[in-house]
């Protein structure tokens, strides 16, 4: 029994967090659009998105990257890990954050805030930590918009995005 439990825990640590490929594809499809609807950049020719994940999530990050390139040929992507994020994502306009411990996410958000970068996370629960964008997956897909920190970031969003988004403020949906 102990052996089985140890095997499961080991495999979990090896395989990282659980992702749905369909949701990953959806995020990859919408991330550039949301980026363009922000004040960070409007020029699709020079957009750059940094995909940040744990070491165990390289596969899903690759999937995200491939889907994004499939949809948008001109967008530059950078795959990075949280430990190398500050050096590898310095030129990117957006940080797409896959799941990670809250301390790491908070640190990443702080980095983004200081460098005037847009943040979007796979999981919406990170919006409480200051991530600006996520997706609400329900009967319809809607962006989550975290406006309070975005004001502190000095980042604004287009009115059309505001009109179609759900507002996030302190866990309220």
């Amino acid at each position: 029994m102990k052996l089985i439990l140890a095997t499961i825990l080991l495999s979990h640590s090896l395989w990282g967090y659980v992702y749905d490929t369909l949701l990953v594809d959806t995020h990859a499809t919408l991330a550039p659009k949301l980026l363009m609807m922000s004040s960070v950049s409007k020029d699709i020719e020079h957009l750059s998105i940094c995909i940040v994940c744990e070491n165990t999530d390289d596969g899903v990050a690759l999937r995200f990257k491939q889907t994004l390139h499939h949809k948008y040929k001109n967008i530059k992507t950078v795959s990075s890990h949280y430990v190398k994020m500050q050096s590898e994502c310095s030129r990117s306009h957006m940080l797409f954050l896959f799941d990670a411990p809250d301390e790491i996410i908070a640190k990443s958000v702080k980095y983004a805030k200081l460098n005037h970068k847009l943040t979007m996370s796979y999981s919406s629960r990170y919006l409480d930590l200051g991530v600006l964008l996520s997706l609400h997956i329900g009967r319809s897909v809607k962006p989550y918009l975290n406006l309070s920190p975005s004001k502190e970031y000095g980042i604004s969003f287009s009115n059309s995005l505001k009109r179609v988004s759900k507002l996030w403020k302190g866990g309220w949906i």
């Binding site: 406006l147 004001k151 604004s156 009115n159 505001k162 009109r163």
Partner: peptide
């Protein structure tokens, strides 16, 4: 009705510059 949600959001979050631009 089209602009009201946006204006409400901007006012609620004190986004006056965005309202002006809008």
């Amino acid at each position: 009705d089209t602009i009201l949600p946006v204006v409400q959001i901007n006012v609620a979050f004190d986004l006056n510059d965005e309202n002006r631009a809008y």
